[in-house]
Design a protein around this nucleic acid. Structure first.
Lengths: 122, 122
DNA sequence: GTATCTGCAAATCATTTGCATTCTG
DNA sequence: CAGAATGCAAATGATTTGCAGATAC
């Protein structure tokens, strides 16, 4: 385990123990229960670093917030337009190696968002 | 053809004749060449309506801008982290009908974004 | 002791909104 | 004329950033 700041560890820990896809602010509130003095700027800075290094996934959906996901393996996100929930789903996604061949594009990660209405909101 | 305002028609026309995935501001600048008095607020308002009614697609990528796409059929978007380009790609995407069965989720539309480095930026 | 990280607060900037006016039928 | 859309300008609000002090090695 690398030697990160305790703030960074706490942020990762919160993310690890959540199956939702929280926003920076939600994570901030949660970490504050452990480290009351942490600042929102620090949360944003660490999340940016973690997502840039590929340790976590950054997810932009149409609600104006950036969401974060501890699970980096490719999977689909079902975003309910009514309640705003983001639900994980396994979907077979065509292997990206094809992109390298056909278009010369080097894929790094994949975001798959399906918009619709969830079971509860129907 | 519905009877829209000339501003709305001009916005749609710009979008129709573009193979990039422009932002609201880009569209605004482009429409201004035809209708110099148009306001950015009107562009935003019309884009919101059009994307809500399903006539165009709204695309959120990790660059902080909302992008718009005249092509609403499901396809993948390759977003280059270096130059910011968004390239269309055909990818077989698993039929979404599965989601209705397995999770009770009613899918409406699908956004597929692949982050990576494009041919030119390598 | 240098480089990195933090807390704080102010700045940024894409997007939204209120309102008076203009257009449409 | 009523309802809808517009232009303008101000407000909103998530995210970023500068800076001085704290922390890590």
């Amino acid at each position: 385990m690398k030697n990160y700041s305790k703030q960074r560890e706490a942020i990762l820990e919160v993310l690890r123990c959540t199956d939702t896809h929280p926003t920076a602010n939600w994570i901030y509130e949660k970490v504050r229960e452990t480290i009351p003095s942490i600042s929102l700027g620090t949360v944003y800075r660490n999340l940016a670093q973690l997502s840039q290094s590929g340790e976590i996934l950054s997810l932009h959906v149409a609600d104006g917030f950036e969401h974060f996901d501890f699970v980096t393996a490719p999977h689909a996100h079902l975003h309910c337009k009514k309640c705003g929930a983001i639900i994980d789903a396994k979907l077979d996604i065509e292997p990206l190696s094809k992109l390298s061949n056909d278009l010369g594009f080097t894929p790094q990660n994949t975001i798959y968002v399906v918009y619709g209405i969830c079971k509860n909101c129907k």
